[in-house]
Design a protein around this nucleic acid. Structure first.
Length: 852
RNA sequence: GCCCUGGUAGCCCAACCGGCAGAGGCAAUCGACUCAAACUCGAUCCAGUGUGGGUUCGAAUCCCACCCAGGGCACCA
């Protein structure tokens, strides 16, 4: 190896020579050598093992979102795990039994696609990558409890995925239905709504998603919509407000009324959902979603000509529907169905149209159109020359009536007084809605209702590398696989063609798919689809408490002790998908009696992303900065420190704006302090330099607050100050390297740095004469007496402008301070003889003198 | 279109409850050390807080309007 090994083979050789310098040259900071030296020691001592029997420390659960094993770790991982580690290591230093586990989200399409491309088994690809990432994480000094590792692709794990499915199935929360689903034509599988980007493309493959009618499994997350929404209130303050508002948006609850309309020539009424039942008198037509069964049915009862026009329109809609969802100003299209509804409040005949601006899967797929007060309805009315009737008198800021929507083309959606509305006339929006609902209920034509933007969670995937759905289809219907027959193992890939073809590759595994019915032994077929991998990650945090338990998904006593997760750390990219699903599953398991809590993550920290020159680094765009290169060049500690110091954790880091070389310089500077300390570990700090001690204690005090508030960048800045102050003291002949206050300061630096730069901190600790591990040394105790300052600087302002500064006692009296300030020559000069109007005194920090 | 963040030095970022705009770092410049360089050490330079109003003794901080950047939702009745 290199000279670093020679250097490390001896114990602390004084005057080791690395660059051919003269004999007696001092040792230098060598990041690579420190890594070689301490990694094996930590492997041996396992300072982050958690949950040992008899461990009396209070428990804390810190969790980083587990990675997907595609290739080696990249800069994004490096940031996330550096920041999560600061928190985990901090709580260990504070004396907690911290569970900080790691695992791999190992099922999923990328493994399968990569495997197809290279003709490999997805298992081999996945587990090779895991091994590589795991080795990288160890080198990166992540404070994980390595005894708790899990992989979601292990049968030991996905067994319990199947168990979870059965629990939901028993509860009626897993069901199969036939509907239009999002189909990814590239990956040849369906996608959840959440996996379709706003521009209508797949978040995975980037392909334009199309609609396809399929029978699929769903989890009934909409049953939990109210709780998922309302319980967000309790996360206020501990979750980023951004995530909370994104989830609120996503669930999208609205309140209104269901209103029943009679249909001429049809026995059944049609119910529509509206948020504005007060405007019912303004309804001039009805619209049903063109792709709904209702439209089909209504058209079937119409004339031959209408049926033909409808069929043509429907085909057109299905071909173009997802193509230009984005084009919000695209012209309204539709066909009249030649059928009529009857307005329940005034008996008017309303023509029924089929159009694509009404969605089949929201509400009832039918609306009452009130063109005067709804822009979409107005656009439609103007396109097809339908009547517009104003029923709300909306005024502008000056109290003038707004122009007639029929003429202006702008619907008046604002608040106003109801007109042309019979018994509702004169009421405002709020009262009008309440009265309208009352009257509808009284006449049996309507009732209060609410709706959600959130849809049920589609979990079927037509791919190989996932958890088989534990259902068998028999001649008489679907039968769940009995719990004691789990797991349903994935068949081997031999003989299977994994290439996407629209149906699950598992269906071709004849030996696997053909099974006797668990009920009566008659021939049956397994469900060949696999589960969305978001199912895997929706409960993995529970499994960590007992990852090797083969009798249950998780140990209920242990999860009661550890859960919920005290601190969750991960990217904001999962703000909706993963976090919403995890919250849902947690609530379900709570309701089933498995959990005592119903929110999984008490606190959440979103780290930002790492960019280069303003552009995101990702697999698809090519990794502009390679983590391995950075680690090679600057060392683990410098990279980690840079991640913490770059800015607030939630901000993105542009690698071009930060300086790992600067971090490295700072670490060397800190390290040299430890090298220079000459006092013994037993020296008494109380005998040390008072000024330096004050700086040390004040720094530790502030760092503590900053770390707890996630202001890691500021915490690091404070340590830099302490290092600078200590260096000055060491070089000051009046203090010097033997002063016990210097040792106290350097020890504090070592312990605090153990959160950010573990290798450097460990070596400093050793040089200070201590045994490893510094990670378990304990957080420095602040002596409150040393935080009290003898004097404070009082600012004296004249008209808010600083004119003088006074050194005063912290408990100086107001009157005394006022007199002192007025006596200042600089103040008198600024006043130039003017009379005083007021003197504001905020003892002891400030006096503001206002002249007349 | 609606909602949410955020604009402080050349750059990344601090600044408590409204109270001295600068803690820390990068870059730059100068000096010391060196045969020279790297390393190291020391020093210097730099903004009045996106714009315009308002409240206040006092505003980066609070309020209003606007501009810019980023993010979320978007034909959800």
């Amino acid at each position: 190896m290199t000279q670093t090994e020679a250097e490390q083979s001896g114990t602390q050789p004084s005057g080791s020579q690395q660059h051919g310098g003269p004999a007696g040259e001092e040792e230098r900071y060598d990041a690579a050598a420190l890594q070689e030296k301490w990694l094996p020691v930590w492997d041996e001592l396992a300072p982050f093992a958690s949950g040992a029997p008899g461990d009396e420390r209070p428990k804390k659960y810190v969790l980083d979102m587990f990675p997907y094993p595609s290739g080696d770790l990249h800069m994004g991982h490096a940031e996330a795990y550096a920041l999560g580690d600061v928190i985990a290591r901090y709580w260990v230093q504070q004396g907690f039994d911290v569970m900080h586990p790691i695992g791999w989200d190992a099922f999923g399409l990328p493994a399968e696609n990569a495997a197809i491309k290279r003709g490999l088994d997805p298992r081999a690809w996945t587990y090779d990558n895991i091994a590589q990432q795991k080795a990288s994480m160890r080198r990166y000094a992540c404070s994980f409890d390595w005894d708790r590792v899990l992989h979601t692709s292990d049968p030991e794990y996905y067994t319990w995925n199947q168990w979870l499915f059965l629990k939901l199935y028993e509860k009626g929360l897993a069901y199969r239905k036939d509907s239009l689903v999002n189909w990814d034509p590239v990956d040849q599988t369906v996608l959840a709504n959440e996996q379709v980007l706003p521009d209508g493309t797949s978040e995975r493959s980037g392909a334009l998603v199309v609609k396809k009618k399929l029978t699929q499994w769903y989890f009934k997350i909409t049953d939990y919509a109210d709780r998922l929404l309302d319980d967000l209130d309790g996360l206020e303050g501990t979750w980023p407000s951004k995530v909370i508002s994104m989830q609120r948006n996503w669930i999208g609850r609205s309140y209104g009324a269901d209103v029943d309309f009679e249909i001429e020539g049809r026995d059944e009424r049609v119910t529509v959902y509206t948020t504005r039942p007060d405007t019912l008198h303004g309804a001039t037509f009805m619209v049903v979603a063109a792709d709904s069964d209702l439209a089909e049915e209504l058209a079937a009862g119409a004339s031959e000509q209408v049926r033909e026009r409808f069929a043509a329109y429907r085909t057109q809609v299905q071909e173009t529907s997802d193509m230009d969802r984005l084009a919000s100003d695209r012209p309204k299209t539709g066909v009249a169905l030649g059928r009529y509804a009857v307005n329940p409040v005034n008996g008017e005949r309303l023509p029924i149209w089929a159009a694509d601006y009404v969605l089949a899967d929201y509400g009832t797929g039918a609306i009452m159109a009130v063109p005067a007060h709804d822009q979409r309805d107005l656009d439609f009315a103007r396109a097809f020359d339908l009547p517009v009737r104003v029923v709300v008198d909306v005024r502008d800021a000056d109290g003038d009536p707004l122009p007639d929507p029929a003429a202006s083309g702008t619907a008046t959606a604002g608040d106003g007084v109801l007109v042309n509305s019979g018994s509702l006339d004169g009421l405002d929006k709020r009262a009008g809605i309440a009265r309208a609902i009352e009257e509808l209920q009284a006449s049996g034509r309507g009732r209060p209702a609410k709706n959600y933007r959130l849809r049920d969670w589609l979990i079927s995937r037509q791919r190989y590398w996932g958890t088989p759905i534990p259902i068998v289809h028999t001649a008489t219907g679907e039968v769940p696989v009995p719990e004691d027959q789990l797991p349903v193992l994935l068949p081997p890939t031999e003989g299977l063609n994994l290439t996407p073809k629209g149906t699950s590759p598992l269906g071709a595994a004849e030996d696997w798919v053909n099974v006797p019915s668990p009920v009566d032994g008659t021939p049956a077929r397994r469900d060949a689809d696999t589960m969305d991998t978001f199912v895997d990650s929706s409960w993995y945090f529970l499994r960590f408490v007992s990852p090797h338990d083969d009798t249950q998904a998780f140990d209920r006593d242990l999860i009661a002790q550890w859960g919920p997760v005290d601190q969750y750390v991960g990217g904001v990219t999962h703000a909706i998908l993963h976090l919403l699903y995890a919250r849902f599953i947690t609530k379900v398991l709570h309701d089933l009696g498995y959990l005592s809590f119903d929110e999984p993550f008490s606190r959440l920290l979103n780290q930002g992303m790492v960019q280069m020159d303003g552009s995101a680094m990702s697999k698809s765009k090519g990794n502009l900065v390679r983590l391995s290169d950075q680690l090679e060049e600057h060392g683990v500690d410098a990279v980690r420190l840079t991640m913490s110091f770059a800015g607030p954790p939630e901000d993105d880091i542009d690698w071009a704006d930060v300086s790992p070389a600067g971090s490295s310089k700072f670490l060397a500077r800190a390290w040299r302090l430890a090298r220079d300390v000459t006092s013994s570990p037993e020296s008494d700090p109380a005998a040390g330099n008072a000024a330096l001690r004050a700086v040390t204690h004040r720094t530790v005090h502030e760092v503590t607050q900053h770390v707890e508030a996630f202001r890691f960048n500021v915490a690091v800045a404070r340590v830099m100050e302490l290092v600078n102050a200590t260096r000055k003291a060491v070089d000051d002949p009046a203090v010097g390297p033997a002063d016990p206050a210097v040792r106290e300061a350097v020890e504090a630096v070592a312990v605090v740095l153990s959160l950010f730069a573990p290798y450097t901190a460990e070596d400093m600790w050793a040089r200070l004469g201590h045994e490893p591990c510094v990670a378990r040394a304990g957080w420095p105790v602040v002596d409150a007496a040393l935080l009290v300052q003898d004097t404070v600087t009082c600012v004296v302002q004249v008209q808010g402008k600083v004119k003088d500064r006074l050194e005063v006692s912290p408990d100086v009296g107001e009157d005394e301070l006022r007199a002192l300030a007025l006596a200042s020559a600089k103040v008198q000069a600024a006043l130039a003889g003017r009379d005083l109007r007021t003197v504001v005194v905020r003892a002891p920090k400030l006096v503001n003198i206002v002249p007349a």
